[in-house]
Design a protein around this nucleic acid. Structure first.
Lengths: 234, 234
DNA sequence: GCAAAAGTGTTATTATTACACCCATGC
DNA sequence: GCATGGGTGTAATAATAACACTTTTGC
């Protein structure tokens, strides 16, 4: 008979994800940041909205677990996925739980699996009260994405393969919550050398706009923990 | 009789910490970044050096667990402690383990508990091969601290209460691994409005240098997940 | 006085910002 | 033509960087 320090409850490990996308009410209106939430059907905080997630399987890596649980609960496939933070304080939930939270982007055209009833999109900045500490987690994820859009190419995760500079700018404006000067924005991204101009144009009731694609060869200024190695810092 | 998805092994949760400090061989030499490592005395990677850490207790919050395990293994008390990343892929270790890794700073004058035999300081940039994926983790922590010193006040965690601008600059130089112009550095920190000049001076074989302290009222430009709330971003 | 580090001044370069203005299309 | 956004030019301002120079101490 073995004895451990914690004879009562085991520590359970969950994975959940803050998923951001953009939506616009009507064409011409500025896009807003939205995220899908799942209505809880069980005891702790039953009926409240919560981040999509699930339990980590014993043989499953963390990032695949995030992909799997967000697909199971929302039917979405993210274009970007990154770890946000590990929450694990006692008191977050009745049973001791470690939540490894990821954040993700999905492109504007994606939709929730239609058969899912307890899932809905919410405006990220005017959320109702969510289950657990999920309001704080969303706020932190919002801060992270706003910060990161300034030095990495995550806007890519919200755009189709080809896009105009105006469309790229609208992503920045939606995330940052303020308008940007089109002329200065153009020069900044042109100087960043991360975009490749194509010979295709988006037409409309105005001068055609050149379509761009992201340069796949450019190292993401981004940096996760394990894959990369060389440090720049000037 | 209950049945679960993972009948074989439970998922175990560990906490470990990358602890940075500064050391200089002799007075006058530039300081180097060093970190304490613990020699493993058990099966996986026995004999190799590894990050200090331990198992998470079922009733213990994450940050206190990091403080406790680093104190138990090294005797050190950090002046700064922040979560770095949660590592949890299968294959990191024979038994499935989630490692919540923190990173910490301790001031230059602190020493390891002398009775500990299997603990030693290592130069952070010329490490030997460590147990598990700990080399990668240290590299990531180094990247984080170098990045963060540029926009937050973590240098504080490596300095005593009062310090000269030259001492502050030496912290930056050690972390960034390059020299900084004293004149421009002075203006930058003066304009940042985070330092309070005192009327005390550090004497030596040269003009006395004014001692400064950090302004406690200034919000850390820093941002952890839960405590804060308002977003600046200009 | 001399060495050494503290501290100030000056200028060039670059990045940011604001905004005027021309361009090319659909209607 | 006219409206609409695409795209260029320009000038003011601010941040960065390089480096000369002065100040104040111990010896």
């Amino acid at each position: 008979m073995t004895q451990t320090d914690s004879p009562t409850d085991e520590i359970r490990v969950a994975v959940s994800t803050v998923i951001f996308s953009l939506r616009r009410e009507r064409a011409g209106e500025p896009a807003r940041v939205v995220l899908p939430l799942v209505r809880r059907t069980r005891d702790p905080h039953e009926g409240q909205w919560a981040l999509p997630g699930g339990w980590l399987n014993a043989t499953e890596n963390l990032e695949p677990a995030a992909s799997r649980t967000l697909a199971e609960t929302t039917g979405l496939v993210p274009s970007f996925l990154e770890q946000l933070y590990a929450f694990g304080d006692t008191g977050r939930s009745p049973a001791r739980t470690i939540s490894i939270v990821y954040w993700a982007l999905v492109r504007e055209d994606t939709t929730l699996a239609t058969e899912l009833e307890n899932v809905a999109w919410f405006d990220a900045v005017t959320l109702p009260q969510l289950a657990f500490d999920h309001n704080d987690i969303v706020d932190y994820a919002l801060w992270r994405v706003r910060n990161k859009v300034g030095y990495s190419r995550i806007a890519h995760g919200l755009l189709p393969e080809l896009f105009t500079l105006a469309e790229l700018r609208e992503v920045y404006e939606a995330l940052l919550g303020r308008t940007l000067d089109p002329a200065n924005f153009r020069r900044q991204v042109e100087n960043s050398e991360t975009l490749i101009p194509t010979e295709d144009f988006r037409t409309g009731p105005h001068r055609p706009a050149r379509l761009y694609r992201y340069d796949q060869d450019v190292e993401l200024a981004d940096r996760g923990p394990l894959p990369h190695s060389s440090l720049a810092l000037r």
